[in-house]
Simulated assay, not measured.
Amino acid sequence: MNDRILVAPTDLLGDGVFETVHLRPAGPWLLDEHLARLSRSAAIVGLPEPDLTPVRERVFDTTGVLRIVYTRTLLDISIAPFPESALRERHAGIRVLSADRGISVRRRPPWSITGAKSLSYAENFAARRWAIRQGADDLIWLSTEGYVLEAPTSSVVWLTGDELCTVPPAEADILPGITAGHLLSLAPSVGLRPAERMITLPELAAADTIWLTSSLRGMAEVTELDGIPRPRSPWTPRLLSLLGL
């Protein structure tokens, strides 16, 4: 199911933005939030405001993955099967490494688009392939100052006591995580206090539980960080249930 037009050379160079949405039996999960982020990303990279009527008016009668790509010449809507790896990681957990991304949270160039979900994802996939070659499943990026940022395709969420936290996207200049934000909005209903704050790697390692959250994974518990095993948390199935997963 695709709406396509001829691709321009600039599109092939990653000059565009995208969103990936989990298609459930009830419809696209958190679609309004994804479309709002697509518009914000478009503004960051200097694209005109997208006309998202074709997405809003379409009836989705299947499960899987909805991908929306917007560039200077096209709005592409496609559906793909849901990846089994996302389900496996959601329930079995993931092994994660940390790595310095070589980016400072205090000194970003004025043309930075790190707050946008850009099509320029080659570095993200390269980072995950590197982690897999090291025997892990994914990695967490750190700033040059040692602050936790995000994972290549996920947000970082952690639990310390009764405080459920994620990295503040504006302060860290990272992509706002839709699943992370939604999870924190639901936290008070299970007795947890939501918070956004900067955290160093040693502080993160001392947290009770760490998760990577994204539209497809939902949330995947970090069972090993930099080679050190972590005990499984009873909060994982509870929060997955809270998300309807």
Rank of each mutant, 00 (worst) to 15 (best):
L159C: 13
A180E: 00
V156D: 12
H182N: 12
A170G: 09
L186Y: 04
P169H: 13
L164S: 03
C165Q: 02
P169W: 04
T160W: 12
L164C: 11
A172G: 05
A172Y: 04
C165Y: 06
A187E: 01
G177V: 00
E171Y: 02
T160M: 12
V167K: 03
L183W: 06
W158I: 12
S185T: 13
I174H: 00
V157K: 09
P168D: 13
P176V: 04
L186P: 05
D162Q: 15
L183I: 10
T179N: 01
T179F: 09
L184W: 04
G177H: 02
G177A: 05
L164M: 06
V167N: 03
I178F: 02
E171R: 14
I174E: 05
A187N: 09
D162W: 05
I178Y: 01
V157E: 05
P176H: 12
V156H: 12
A187R: 00
L164T: 01
L159N: 09
I174M: 03
P168F: 04
I178C: 01
T166P: 04
V157H: 09
L186H: 01
T166R: 03
V156I: 12
G181D: 03
P176T: 10
V167W: 04
G177N: 00
I174Y: 06
E163N: 07
L164Y: 01
A172I: 07
L175S: 05
A170Y: 09
E163P: 06
H182M: 01
H182W: 11
G181K: 01
E163S: 14
W158L: 09
H182A: 14
